[in-house]
Write a protein that binds this DNA or RNA. Structure first.
Length: 206
DNA sequence: ACATTAAGTGATT
DNA sequence: AATCACTTAATGT
């Protein structure tokens, strides 16, 4: 197992346990990792790629909460793991992603045994909580055009690429708006010289 | 050539 | 800011 990239995070003993009990999994873009209502059996550790975490309302509309990328895991999942409750969120792969699935049963013993695991879990809670706060005030305080701008920049940063392959419809569902509105806002941004639009692509200028 | 999907636009609420 | 109704353009079969 290629654990080199995790070395800075965990102490050697823990690394070898991860090596022994973790299951490496490759998932493709669009795959659903965890769905709402599912019981969590594994803690996913992201090695490469990114996952988006979203919530769904009663009428089936989705709303994006945050992204999880390398070296992180989903705090909502951790929570569900410990409490043994069903998932409150859906996790969908943003891009082709590789991750290590760690059986949830190790959570407890590792927390007791390994300082680096405790730190890791804590940092993740903190990180996700901040992301969640960002999502909340984005929803309540920002207008749609500002949210859209933030969304695009975040996405570009995530995949380290100023040219996004995404449709207006995908953006609309992530921000839970409608395609027409997104198209218009993007068009305005293009006129303002912020972007270059194409079919399935958005190129960010600066 | 035809169907499908993405994006652009005016009018209306 | 959302929805409708329609157009135009790009892509797949």
């Amino acid at each position: 197992m290629n654990l080199g990239s995790l070395k800075p995070f965990f102490e050697p003993h823990l690394l070898s346990e991860i090596d022994r009990f973790g299951i490496v999994k490759q998932v493709k873009k669009g795959d659903i990792l965890i769905d709402i209502g599912e019981q969590i059996q594994f803690i996913p550790l992201i090695i490469e790629g990114a996952v988006k975490v979203l919530r769904e309302d009663a009428s089936g509309d989705e709303i994006l909460l945050y992204f999880v990328d390398f070296g992180n895991t989903c705090a909502m999942t951790l929570n569900c793991c410990m409490e043994n409750t069903p998932s409150e969120i859906r996790a969908v792969c943003e891009a082709d992603t590789s991750l290590i699935m760690i059986p949830a049963t190790y959570m407890d013993s590792w927390l007791a045994k390994y300082k680096s695991w405790r730190i890791f879990i804590f940092d993740n809670f903190q990180g996700r909580l901040n992301e969640l706060l960002k999502a909340v005030d984005s929803l309540t305080f920002l207008k749609l055009d500002e949210r859209l701008e933030r969304y695009i920049n975040e996405k570009a940063e995530l995949q380290k690429n100023k040219k996004l392959n995404i449709t207006h419809l995908e953006i609309a569902t992530d921000l839970n708006s409608s395609r027409v509105v997104i198209s218009r806002l993007l068009k305005k941004m293009e006129k303002d010289g912020l972007l270059l639009l194409g079919r399935n692509t958005i190129q960010i200028l600066n």
